[in-house]
Write a protein that binds this DNA or RNA. Structure first.
Length: 425
RNA sequence: GGAGAGGUGGCCGAGUGGUCGAAGGCGCAGCACUGGAAAUGCUGUAUAGGGGCAACUCUAUCGAGGGUUCGAAUCCCUCCCUCUCCGCCA
């Protein structure tokens, strides 16, 4: 959420910055609303002050022995009632305005960072660096072809269980998934991340706090009878871990790593990536999340990205780092690096991690602050996948595929998977 | 799911209509005492939004939302949550 004061005092700046995202937002009505709301609030609180004084005076009179039906008190009662009516009227107008205002504010995306390169869409994203040498032989298999032959997962039967875009991991596939999760968690916790396993059903306040609501309700699965949703990413519960908190300065930065399944409706991507592990309604992800002092977020962003990269490097998976341009930024992000892993079978780079700094956007929505001297200050939040597990498996299969149909895994996985080779039964 | 109890400041805990943002204690910070510390004493110690250069000041907040009243932490209604016992259950 954007700062309401900024809306009031400098709407042009917001308009200008949102234009960088390709949005055309007229903030004049919003600014007007914010100003009117403040003036109503001013009037109301002045009146309320008068009313409070009357109430106190009656109290004093009665305590000093005046009869409750004395003329003086009757007079004060009448006066109090008059004020009460005025206050009620103002309150009604103010409430309607601020509900409206809040709704509009919650629908505006974050402003792009000054470092975020301008651009219309993903075609204008910038490659920052790359790592490793992609396999580019002809006739390499796609991961689902390799997996089919090895019996690693079953998509068709999963339709029986749920619907399309679900998989059941089988045998070595299930084992590899488990190995990857442990491998990633271990690597990150060794670097000082605190491991958490949060609820994957989250309430709407949590989704609002991290930016998924109100705008992206159609992207998440909802439990019809409760105010609960299946989390689309661990970013949601982990943000809310500290919602409405003041975190002592000396505790920052807080760095969490969370493994959770993630659930997404993938509305609007019919026909895209219908096979394999790339785009599922349910997938596993290990997520990195930082709560940092506002002045640390720039460095933290580099660090969280590099922590995500370290998994790809340990798994010997070639990748490149892309900086998203303003037009491709996610709703809550002010700056984002995507890690794209090379999929030899597909012959393409695919996103496997997205590392974003949200500055104070989520912190304001979730009211997460720290204390500096006498005043409180919103902290900054960052998140990054470290990594999407299913896509990691896809990359491992395609990258390690051998001509005999087996798959050679990176050495780092041996202690976790138990072998360096996945072989046909 | 059934029965009961309860939600007050960082924590404990008083407060059942009247200058209550809320006694007291603990914790924390500063000061005093000390060679230093402990103990002791004094002072301070919530958040948000307005106004003021500032000292400061106004408003709101006692789980949430409504209501009664000149006045609500206190009374009434609805909801949420927590705890205990029973049942069920991984």
């Amino acid at each position: 959420m954007l700062d309401q004061r900024l809306v009031r005092d400098n709407p042009d700046l917001i308009t200008r910055e949102l234009e960088r995202r390709g949005l055309n937002v007229d903030l004049q009505p919003l600014q007007k609303n914010a100003q009117v709301q403040r003036s109503l609030e001013e009037q109301r609180s002045t009146l309320q002050g008068e009313s409070n004084r009357i109430g106190k005076q009656v109290g004093i009179l009665i305590k000093s022995g005046a009869s409750p039906s004395s003329q003086e008190i009757e007079e004060l009662r009448r006066e109090g009632n008059k004020i009460k009516q005025k206050v009620a009227l103002l309150e009604e107008q103010e409430k309607e305005l601020s509900i409206n205002l809040q709704k509009q504010l919650l629908s505006l995306p974050n402003l792009p960072s000054p470092y975020c390169p301008d651009g219309k869409n993903e075609s204008e994203n910038k490659e920052i660096r790359s790592w490793g040498t992609p396999r580019k032989e002809k006739s390499l298999l796609k991961h689902w072809e390799i997996a089919d032959a090895l019996g690693l997962f079953d998509s068709e039967r999963s339709v029986r269980i749920a619907q399309s875009r679900f998989v059941t991991l089988l045998n070595h596939g299930a084992r590899l998934e488990r190995a990857l999760i442990n491998f990633m968690l271990d690597l990150h916790t060794k670097k000082g991340y605190l491991e958490v396993m949060p609820p994957v059903l989250v309430n709407s306040a949590s989704l609002t706090g991290s930016g998924q609501l109100p705008k992206f309700a159609e992207e998440s699965f909802r439990c019809a009878d409760d105010d609960l949703w299946l989390t689309p990413t661990a970013e949601v519960p982990v943000t809310s871990l500290h919602r409405n908190e003041i975190i002592p300065l000396e505790q920052l930065p807080l760095r969490y790593v969370a493994y959770t399944p993630c659930f997404r409706r993938e509305a609007g991507s019919y026909g895209k990536d219908t096979r394999g592990l790339i785009r599922l309604h349910q997938f596993n992800k290990v997520e990195l999340y930082w709560f940092v002092h506002p002045e640390e977020s720039l460095d933290a962003h580099e660090q969280i990205t590099s922590d995500a990269e370290s998994i790809l490097q340990a798994l010997e998976l070639p990748y490149r780092v892309i900086e998203l341009c303003t037009g491709d930024l996610g709703f809550s992000a002010s700056r984002t690096y995507d890690l794209e892993v090379w999929l030899p079978g597909a012959g393409a780079f695919r996103e496997i991690s997205s590392c974003s700094t949200c500055n104070d956007f989520q912190a304001r929505r979730s009211s997460i602050r720290t204390k500096e001297g006498k005043s409180t200050r919103l902290i900054h939040t960052l998140n990054g996948s470290g990594l999407a597990v299913g896509r990691t498996m896809a990359a491992l299969l395609e990258t390690g595929q051998q001509s005999d149909g087996s798959v050679l895994l990176p050495e780092a996985l041996v202690p976790y998977y138990g072998s360096q080779l996945i072989q046909p039964q």
